[in-house]
C-alpha cells in the first residue's frame, strides 16, 4: 500500500507558495484515489502560518522550522526534506517543481535510496501510479511508471488547481533536523536589471517580442528605442509577462543595439523557458519550431507578423494578423490608456 507525502515550502513571509498548494491538492487527490494515508511536510522559518492554511487538508502535518530554513539553500533544504521523508515514511513524495525544491529533491531521493521524476504534468494510472512528463523540450510526451520506492515526483507549476481549504488551527509535528556546518550564505534576491521586472509568471498574457522589432522597418531604418518604448508601455498597461525569441536576446551578446530590458531570462523556447499563461501574443517573430516549443503551455495564441507565410500561420497560432506590429501595438497602447483613464 502506498503512502503519500507532500513536501511544501514557504515564501519569504513563511506563507505557502502557490505551487506548494497545487502540490497539496494533487497529493490529496492521489491519496484519495489510492486510499493512501497523506502527510504534508512544511519547510519554513516559521511553519505555523502554513500549518494553519493546511488545517482542512485532512493530513498529518510535519514541519521543520527555524531561521536556517528561511532561505533556500541546498544543504539545509536537503537535510530538512530528508528529515521530513524519514519521519513520514512515505512511498510516494510529491513536491512542487519550484527553484527551491528542484535544487535539492534529486539529492534527497538519492539519500533515501529512492528515485525521482520531475516536471510532472499529470498524475494518472489505475492500479499503479503513472505520471506524465515531457522530453526533448516539450516535443515528446511520455507516460511512465516506477516500481521502486520511495518515488519522488516534482509537479510543474500550473498543472494542478491550488488547495484552497479554509484556514484553521492544526496540530503540527515538529521534526528535528541535523544541520551540516554552514558553508553557503544566501545574501538576497537580485532583479534582472534596471529594476524593470518584466517576467510575471502569474500574468494572464505572455507577450513575446521577436527579432523583427529591431530590424529595418518600412522606411529602411531601425527603430529600436521606439520599439522598446512601445513594448514597455504595453507591459505597463496590460500587466503582461514579457518573453522573447532567442534571436532577439542573442543580439545583445553580439554588441548590436537591442532592447535594454531583455535578458536570456526572457527567452522562450528550445533553450529558454516554457511558461504557462492562458493567452499569448507574439509580435515580430517568425514562429519557428524551436521557439514555438516554448509555447506548449500557452492557451490561446495570437500573432502579429508582416509575413503571411510565417510559422504561426501553420497551425501554431489561433489568429495571425498580417500587420505592422509597431502600428498595431501603438494603437493597442492608446486603447489601454484610454480604458484606464
Amino acid at each position: 500500500m502506498e503512502s503519500i507525502l507532500v513536501l511544501t515550502h514557504g515564501n519569504e513571509a513563511s506563507a505557502l507558495t502557490k505551487a506548494s498548494l497545487e502540490a497539496v491538492a494533487a497529493g490529496m487527490g492521489l491519496a484519495s484515489r489510492l486510499g493512501a494515508p497523506l502527510s504534508i511536510g512544511i519547510v519554513a522559518a516559521d511553519g505555523s502560518a502554513a500549518a494553519s492554511a493546511l488545517a482542512s487538508a485532512g493530513a498529518r502535518l510535519l514541519a521543520v522550522s527555524g531561521a536556517a530554513f528561511a532561505q533556500p539553500r541546498y544543504a539545509t533544504d536537503a537535510a530538512a526534506c530528508q528529515a521530513l521523508c524519514r519521519a513520514a515514511r512515505a512511498s510516494i513524495v510529491l513536491a512542487p517543481e519550484s527553484a527551491r525544491f528542484a535544487r535539492v529533491m534529486a539529492g534527497v531521493a538519492h539519500r533515501l535510496g529512492g528515485f525521482i521524476d520531475t516536471h510532472i504534468t499529470a498524475l494518472g494510472g489505475a492500479e499503479h501510479v503513472e505520471v506524465t512528463r515531457w522530453f526533448y523540450r516539450q516535443r515528446v510526451e511520455a507516460v511512465l511508471s516506477r516500481a521502486a520506492r520511495p518515488w519522488f515526483l516534482l509537479l510543474d507549476a500550473g498543472t494542478h488547481a491550488a488547495f484552497a481549504g479554509a484556514p484553521g488551527s492544526a496540530q503540527t509535528e515538529q521534526v528535528a533536523v541535523e544541520l551540516p556546518a554552514p558553508h553557503t550564505t544566501v545574501t538576497g534576491l537580485r532583479a534582472p536589471q534596471q529594476g524593470a521586472q518584466t517576467i510575471r509568471p502569474d500574468a494572464g498574457l505572455l507577450f513575446v517580442a521577436g527579432a523583427g522589432w529591431t530590424k529595418k522597418q518600412a522606411d529602411g531604418q531601425v527603430h529600436t528605442s521606439e520599439a522598446g518604448q512601445i513594448i514597455l508601455e504595453f507591459l505597463r498597461g496590460s500587466g503582461a509577462s514579457l518573453g522573447s525569441s532567442k534571436s532577439l536576446v542573442d543580439q545583445g551578446s553580439e554588441g548590436q543595439p537591442v532592447l535594454p530590458f531583455l535578458t536570456h531570462l526572457n527567452q522562450v523556447g528550445q533553450t529558454g523557458a516554457t511558461p504557462r499563461h492562458p493567452k499569448g501574443l507574439s509580435t515580430c517573430c517568425h514562429g519557428e519550431e524551436p521557439h514555438v516549443v516554448g509555447w506548449r503551455f500557452i492557451g490561446e495564441r495570437r500573432a502579429i507578423s508582416l509575413d503571411p507565410n510565417c510559422g504561426w500561420t501553420r497551425g501554431k497560432a489561433d489568429v495571425v494578423y498580417v500587420a505592422d506590429a509597431f502600428q498595431v501595438m501603438t494603437k493597442v497602447n492608446a486603447l489601454l490608456a484610454a480604458r484606464k483613464a
Binding site: 528515485f115 494510472g125 503513472e130 522530453f135 516535443r139 515528446v140 510526451e141 511520455a142 507516460v143 511512465l144 511508471s145 516506477r146 516500481a147 521502486a148 506548449r296 495564441r301 503571411p308 504561426w312 500561420t313 501553420r314 497551425g315 501554431k316 497560432a317 489561433d318 489568429v319 495571425v320 494578423y321 498580417v322 500587420a323
Partner: peptide
C-alpha cells in the same frame, strides 16, 4: 526501475485564422 507506458508526439495543430485585411 523505470517503465515507459506511452511515448507520443503531441498534436498541436490549430485551425489558424489568417487576418490580412484589417
Amino acid at each position: 526501475s523505470l517503465r515507459y507506458v506511452a511515448v507520443s508526439l503531441p498534436r498541436q495543430q490549430r485551425a489558424t485564422r489568417v487576418v490580412k485585411d484589417m
